[in-house]
């Protein structure tokens, strides 16, 4: 068997046409009119791994190099005369459409698993290991920013505020999860009827949601839901998940070009609404337990949800929506 290629002398960029053949015990014979090379053994060669149809480099100990495109013959020679073929299986995988298809399936399954289970559960683990103070760090300036741009001072009467604050204190009285829960009242303005939980334990009710509620039971239910968001560290978990996802995409595809960094953001948006829906359901379940524990009716949350949803005329497309469909949530509260 003969390999045809080019011989480099190891000192200059000049190459010479050459033929390489191997005699039975492994002695190499190089036919090159310009350079005389002899006395080498096949086992002294360092052979570059096979990658696609790129050339192979057979390096001799003294810097001499034989370059050839006869990839199949090189592999046959390695098989015949021994040589480092520990990594040759990689090329066999890379050279087959069957393994490529298998890889597509494998990677797709991994991505699906990572998005649905791996990433959320890792973020959950990390969020519960980190000290509570990290949650406070995340939302240090959030309320002051919201006050500046979105909210106006509440117009509720002091008695009303005090009554609701007492209800809130009762709910959190027996909690010792390290969070400093505090109830705030604001005029929501354009935000409308809504309630928010900040990662540090601040719970904000807009005047509008207080007016929308039929009775205080419904508001206590919303408080429990928001306490759930805080206790389950949803803010921190969202931050962890959304920062890890683009990173993961870049690590997997090994690509940080302009196009892909824009692209990395898109699946994040898609996936984030899924995560957010999961958080809502988790907070609902938390609220249900807390309400039962304090001898309230969990269905009062369902009543307020219905009022909110008729207010919002929510769309049917629940893939992009940050909240799960209301009927589904009510169903879960009823069970």
């Amino acid at each position: 068997m003969q390999l045809s290629g080019r011989l480099f002398d190891g000192h200059t960029s000049k190459s010479h046409p050459a033929e390489l053949s191997v005699a039975e015990p492994g002695d190499i014979r190089i036919d090159c009119p310009a350079l005389s090379v002899s006395g080498y053994h096949w086992s002294e060669l360092t052979i570059s791994p096979r990658i696609g149809s790129t050339a192979r480099y057979l390096d001799l100990p003294n810097g001499l190099r034989f370059e050839t495109r006869d990839n199949d013959q090189v592999d046959q020679l390695i098989g015949l005369h021994a040589g480092d073929d520990r990594l040759s299986w990689i090329h066999r995988l890379e050279n087959s459409y069957r393994y490529a298809l298998l890889s597509v399936i494998c990677v797709a399954l991994f991505i699906w698993w990572g998005i649905n289970y791996g990433l959320p559960s890792a973020a959950r683990q990390v969020a519960f290991v980190l000290p509570v103070s990290v949650n406070e760090e995340v939302s240090k300036h959030t309320l002051s920013t919201l006050d500046k741009y979105l909210f106006k001072p509440s117009t509720l009467s002091t008695e009303r505020k005090e009554k609701l604050t007492r209800d809130f204190e009762t709910l959190i009285a027996s909690r010792d999860d390290g969070f400093n829960y505090q109830l705030h009242f604001r005029d929501g303005g354009a935000v409308g009827p809504n309630a928010f939980a900040l990662p540090d334990g601040s719970v904000i009710f807009t005047d509008q949601i207080i007016k929308l509620a039929g009775d205080d039971e419904e508001l206590i239910a919303v408080m429990s839901h928001e306490i759930g968001h805080v206790n389950m560290r949803h803010g921190l978990r969202r931050a962890l998940q959304s920062s890890a996802l683009p990173l993961l995409i870049i690590v997997i595809t090994g690509d940080m070009s302009t196009a892909s960094s824009v692209l990395a953001a898109l699946p994040t948006i898609l996936v984030e609404s899924q995560y957010s829906q999961a958080f809502e359901l988790e907070a609902d379940a938390f609220a249900k337990d807390l309400l039962i524990q304090h001898e309230h009716d969990p269905m009062s949350l369902a009543r307020l949800l219905e009022k909110l949803s008729s207010e919002h005329e929510e769309g049917t497309n629940d893939w992009f929506s940050s909240h799960p469909p209301t009927p589904e949530r009510i169903e879960k509260l009823r069970d």
Binding site: I90, E94, A100, V251, T253
Partner: peptide, 26 residues
């Protein structure tokens, strides 16, 4: 290149990222 690319991603995933160095070189 598609075959090389996808097989390398798959190996990177299966080795928890260790293979990424080999993937980069290849």
């Amino acid at each position: 290149f598609f075959k090389i690319w996808i097989v390398n991603i798959c190996l990177t995933v299966l080795t928890l990222g260790i293979y990424s160095a080999w993937a980069k070189v290849r």
